[in-house]
Nucleic acid binder design. Structure first.
Length: 372
RNA sequence: GGAGGGGUUGGGGAGCGGUCAAACCCAGCAGACUGUAAAUCUGCCGCCUCGUGCUUCGAAGGUUCGAAUCCUUCCCCCUCCA
């Protein structure tokens, strides 16, 4: 399933093959929680060279429900996306919907935020759902540990995730898709290592680092990624869940991570926070009102090739949905181009100079936000 | 000409004697967002020498300890009747 093509330091250049084709790593997966990458079509995803997307087990269970997806012939067919799909298990919702769920050894009971309905998820059901959706990569049900968490809390949480991982592994039964385990352990290196060791014994097709970017300091994110990624199995994909900013991704690739997903490019696009080669542009700021420049002179995306900052500013101010679409196209292009450049640098063995140039550009930016 | 209704901080629109520099919405300005309850949320939004400071609620007078709120006159606007 995973082919390692080249290495540059700890960084890896690889390829993951699935039932719906292969994708190149390091890879970024645009997020399509409800079976749609917000504001853009699969056709656009193709045009910007997205090779795999992420969707969400919990949210799809809530709406439209697995029956409807099966009625439509599975998630790929339902959303008309013929390339790989990875689904998050709902483990993140254990964290993000903490106030609306109860967790026990058996599983998680959610009170739907929509109508208060009780929704139950345990490892077995989670596997059944993801297989019914027909996704290419399923994730084990885990408990995304919040930050801050005392070491004892993080340990209990990590152990629970480990037990759930085992149940997930046992319940998962598919020759068309693969299952990834998720490392937890908060910001504690020892716990992270224990978690990884426990998961390795269950032999997953890939391994993920979860429970980061949940509010912890940047240093912790870097420290844990640096410690754990190199210890993850060499011939299996390594996935850092929910990360992150462009710089987070660059740093994690340097540490040996292969796969990423994050809502940042899509959500920020809708909120007018745009990544460019010169730094972050907040398109709704008055400074862009009169600018006939393209958003990013160095970008070849549809948005930058055809529209001015002034126009994007106007779309944002008038709440035109085209603004969301154009800005999402741009931000995702920025991310996907970044991944392509990272892959090329690793192949050429020039990752360090790429990172240096990347950091310089961002450090020289007038906008300090670009580095965060 | 007669009878009503109304003029409030950029726009809309509450308020109808003190707790009012004046609700709320929009516009405007800025900030946040990391496995998406997010095309969302938060803050600011009369002036200044930032204080139990100053100037505001069509205008001018008045009543009152105190007025956006009550009275008088005037100026506008709207509806209806002639």
């Amino acid at each position: 399933m995973f082919k390692l093509i080249a290495k540059d330091g700890e960084a890896r250049r690889g390829e993951v093959s699935t039932e719906h084709g292969t994708f190149q790593t390091p890879a970024f997966m645009p997020v399509g929680t409800y079976g749609a990458v917000k504001s853009i079509s699969p056709e656009i995803l193709h045009s910007i060279n997205a090779e795999i997307i992420l969707s969400n087990t919990y949210h799809l269970m809530e709406r439209p429900g697995v029956d409807i997806i099966q009625l439509n012939g599975g998630l790929h067919n339902f959303m008309s996306w013929d390339k790989p799909i990875l689904t998050d298990s709902g483990g993140y919702q254990v964290f993000s919907l903490a106030k609306k769920r109860k967790i026990t050894e058996e599983g998680v009971e959610f009170n739907s935020a929509l109508n208060g309905n009780k929704l139950f998820l345990n490892p077995e059901k989670c596997m059944e759902l993801q297989q019914s959706y027909g996704v290419d990569i399923a994730m084990v049900l885990d408990e995304c540990t919040p930050y801050p968490a005392e070491i004892s809390v993080a340990e209990n949480s990590m152990q629970l995730s480990l037990r759930w991982a085992e149940r997930s592994r046992d319940a998962f039964n598919s020759n068309k898709s693969s299952l990834f385990g998720i490392i937890q352990g908060g910001v504690y290196g020892d716990l992270r290592e224990q978690s990884l060791e426990g998961l390795k014994r269950m032999d997953f097709e890939g391994y993920a680092i979860g429970g980061l970017s949940v509010g912890e300091p940047k240093d912790d994110l870097r420290k844990i990624t640096n410690l754990i990624a190199p210890k993850m199995p060499v011939y299996k994909p390594r996935y850092l869940m929910g990360v992150g900013t462009p710089l987070d991704i660059v740093k994690a690739v340097e540490s040996g991570v292969d796969m990423f997903d994050c809502v940042i490019p899509t959500r920020h696009a809708r909120n007018g926070y745009l990544y460019t080669s010169e730094g972050v542009i907040k398109i709704r700021n008055a400074a862009n009102k009169n600018s006939v420049e393209p958003l990013d002179k160095e970008c070849d995306c549809y948005t930058c090739q055809n529209f001015s900052r002034s126009y994007l500013h106007h779309l944002d101010k008038t709440n035109e949905m085209l603004g969301s679409t154009l800005q999402t196209i741009h931000n995702l292009t920025f991310y996907l181009n970044l991944m392509r450049n990272l892959r090329a640098s690793i192949e050429k063995g020039t990752l360090q100079s790429f990172i240096k140039r990347f950091e310089e550009t961002w450090n020289n930016s007038d906008n300090p936000n670009i580095n965060t």
